[in-house]
């Protein structure tokens, strides 16, 4: 009954393969092997350097934990400001870089100042748009517990004032004055100075000079109208600005009714009287020069005069700037 080889082969095709426990199922004869060997796997959308010129990628680096990276990023942006100044990138750039005012590294803060300068020199309007949040962060820096950050805050203030002084003093006159006084250690409430201020004041007069200069600029912008300022600075005659403003015309600055706080989110104050004069002052709108002057005379002038005298007597760099401030005050208020 032996069958021929051909017959056997034929029969084999129709035999059923038995499955066995614990053994993998035999693969079909026509199965295709898809395995391959490769040294690296590369996925295209995970490539880091897809577009080296895309600056949006670098925004996140502003929050990098490494100081150098932050600083480098700031300089990169600073270099590319001329090309991106009109682009949509500016808003996110500013919103993300402004918090660096409170950065713990001196270099990063300096980098930010340079960046702000660069932006301001190209288009001051952009800074004006963001001056609200700018002021908030400067204010925060002024009350910061780390002395260095506190000391640097006035630098930012003076640079900001350079580009959008009007805007700043109109919106947050009292707040900034309070802040600068705090940095200088001229307490209004307590009898004794705070400990940290006493320390720094003695150590570096350099900072006091910067503070005093910032105060000078602030007062200059706040209490002096444009004509007087330009008289002082340059010999240019500015007839246009000299014309009387008609209060019934459309104002030439954005958001003229912002001080009414119609659409801002704010926490309600239960009893404003209890929290003292300061709170009422803070809520006061300081839109025009006269109000600002009045507030300054009422609240700050006596303290400034008293303290300035002391600093002038001490002399040095501080004495010089204090003297400058004194003459300004005399010019405005006397």
């Amino acid at each position: 009954m032996t069958k021929s080889r051909k017959q056997k082969q034929k029969k084999q095709d129709f035999l059923r393969k038995k499955l066995k426990v614990g053994k993998p199922k035999e693969k079909a004869r026509n199965a295709t092997d898809t395995s391959f060997v490769s040294k690296t796997i590369s996925i295209r959308n995970q490539h880091l350097d897809q577009n080296p010129h895309d600056l949006t990628k670098r925004l996140t680096l502003l929050k990098h934990h490494n100081i150098n990276v932050r600083k480098e990023t700031l300089t990169t942006f600073q270099k590319s400001i001329p090309s991106i100044i009109k682009s949509r990138l500016m808003t996110p750039l500013l919103t993300q870089s402004i918090p660096l005012i409170c950065d713990e590294s001196q270099q990063v803060r300096q980098g930010l100042i340079n960046l702000v300068d660069e932006i301001g020199s190209h288009d001051a309007e952009i800074l004006k748009l963001h001056c609200n949040i700018f002021v908030l962060y400067i204010n925060m820096a002024m009350t910061h517990i780390v002395t260095q950050i506190q000391a640097d805050s006035t630098k930012f203030l003076s640079h900001l004032l350079k580009y959008c002084g009007d805007e700043v003093v109109r919106k947050s006159w009292v707040k900034l004055l309070n802040g600068v006084f705090g940095v200088l250690g001229w307490g209004q409430v307590g009898k004794n100075d705070s400990a940290s201020i006493v320390q720094t004041k003695k150590r570096n007069a350099k900072y006091v000079t910067i503070h005093l200069n910032a105060l000078y600029t602030l007062v200059e912008y706040g209490c002096q109208d444009e004509r007087a300022r330009s008289d002082g600075d340059t010999a240019e005659t500015t007839e246009d600005s000299g014309t009387l403003r008609n209060p019934y015309l459309i104002p030439d600055y954005p958001q003229p009714f912002e001080h009414l706080k119609l659409f801002t989110r704010e926490l309600k104050v239960q009893d404003a009287t209890s929290s003292g004069v300061n709170a009422t002052l803070l809520s006061l709108a300081t839109q025009d020069i006269d109000t600002r002057k009045a507030v300054f005379i009422e609240q700050f002038l006596p303290i400034v005069r008293k303290k300035i005298e002391v600093i002038i007597k001490e002399g040095g760099e501080c004495g010089k700037s204090a003297n400058k401030l004194k003459t300004l005050l005399a010019k405005i208020f006397d």
């Binding site: 609200n132 949040i133 908030l136 962060y137 204010n139 925060m140 002024m142 009350t143 910061h144 517990i145 309070n178 802040g179 705090g182 307490g187 409430v189 307590g190 004794n192 100075d193 705070s194 400990a195 940290s196 201020i197 989110r265 704010e266 926490l267």
Partner: peptide, 21 residues
Amino acid sequence: YQEEFLQQYAHYESLRDIFML
């Protein structure tokens, strides 16, 4: 430390404002 406290309270206030914004 009243002066110090007031400073920190102001810090809190500005932080709060930033946070609100």
